[in-house]
Computed example of a mutant assay.
Amino acid sequence: MPHEVHAVVAAKQGAPVELRTILVPDPGPGEALVAVQACGVCHTDLHYRDGAINDEFPFLLGHEAAGIVEAVGPGVTDLAPGDFVVLAWRAPCGTCRSCRRGRPWYCFDSRNATQPMTLAGGTSRTKSGGGTPLTPALGIGAFAEKTLVAAGQAVKVDPAARPEAAGLIGCGVMAGYGAAVHTGQVGSGDTVAVIGCGGVGNAAIAGASIAGARRVIAVDIDERKLDGATRFGATHTVNSRRTDPVEAVRELTGGHGADVVIDAVGRPETYRQAFYMRDLAGTLVQVGVPAPDMTIELPLIDLFGRGGALKSSWYGDSLPSRDFPVLIDRHLGGRLDLDGFVTERITLDEVESAFEKMHRGEVLRSVVVL
């Protein structure tokens, strides 16, 4: 019997989101039904609403979520009703060429639920009795009272963590933290610069600090964000609206540049800054997501002569089943301040307003609490 719940839907490109009634099926083989307790409002949801991801409208938005497993389908053995979980948008298949080579964090066939969630009513009917099928954001769709996911997307964590904090590791925190720890491989004594001090950038700052970086330099154009970055472990800040950030970082690193530079913005100008902000043989990690039409041009002699590594970080090169419980444990142990990312708690009908605040740079994360 499908479950009738309220959810946030982007029906048309660029139009304000709507609170609609949707139908969520009971879980089939390999699936889990999750009662959502909290879900962060991420830039990716805004990209879906604006048609910057694809045009498969209508979208069921929301993906940075934590909740309680209500039911599991046939064949699911590692989850049970009552488990507290964080939802991941990467669930390794175990059989693709990347998984077989021992690199499941790059899985090329990540699993999602196979049954569709649908709008309630309407003239177009599915086998489950619902109306128009919805495309869930990042295969999750958690701006809803309940959602259906592949069982591998639901990662059990310590239930002592508050849902509104725990859910944030499902996307932004994991992406930023992993960009520093996994992709950038920040080590003890390293110098690190992070460009962009939103949720992902601050998570990268936290990750670098936890990994033992000697100096963590936060770079942004907003003084308020720079002040906030110190809460997560930044030892120095650079306002790139007031000074040349490349020269400022060099001055803070003995004239050399940083060992690891993380671009959490994803624009041509920030990538270029990050490229020249590195020490010789340093590492550049891009975790900020660029628009499809953006390009970058660099002198080939500089690519060769400066050496080092230029890396893209997909979801922080994370393995959710391994990393989510670790990050929750670090949070509960006082080493990772997940509460610091939560700017405000809102309801489902305030998501559109949260998009506006995010666009104006007023919040790290608005979190829907159900």
Rank of each mutant, 00 (worst) to 15 (best):
Q37K: 03
A38E: 00
C39E: 01
C42S: 07
H43I: 05
H43P: 09
D45G: 03
L46D: 09
L46Q: 08
L46W: 04
Y48M: 00
R49P: 01
R49C: 02
D50M: 13
D50R: 15
I53L: 05
D55N: 10
E56T: 08
E56L: 13
E56V: 06
E56Q: 14
F57E: 09
F59I: 05
F59D: 03
F59N: 04
F59Y: 15
F59E: 06
F59Q: 06
L60S: 04
L60W: 05
L60I: 09
L61N: 02
G62F: 02
H63V: 00
E64I: 00
G67R: 00
E70R: 15
A71P: 04
A71K: 13
V72E: 04
V72L: 04
G73K: 08
G73S: 10
G75S: 10
V76Q: 08
D78N: 15
D78H: 15
D78P: 07
A80I: 04
A80H: 13
P81Q: 09
G82Q: 09
D83Q: 06
F84T: 00
V86F: 01
V86L: 03
A91Q: 07
P92T: 13
C93P: 04
G94H: 12
G94Q: 10
T95E: 14
T95Q: 14
C96I: 08
S98D: 10
S98K: 15
S98W: 15
C99V: 06
R101I: 02
R101V: 02
P104D: 08
W105R: 11
W105H: 15
Y106G: 02
C107I: 06
C107K: 12
F108V: 13
D109V: 04
D109A: 14
R111H: 10
R111G: 04
A113S: 12
A113F: 08
A113W: 12
T114L: 14
T114Q: 14
Q115V: 10
P116M: 10
P116E: 07
T118E: 09
A120R: 15
A120H: 14
G122S: 08
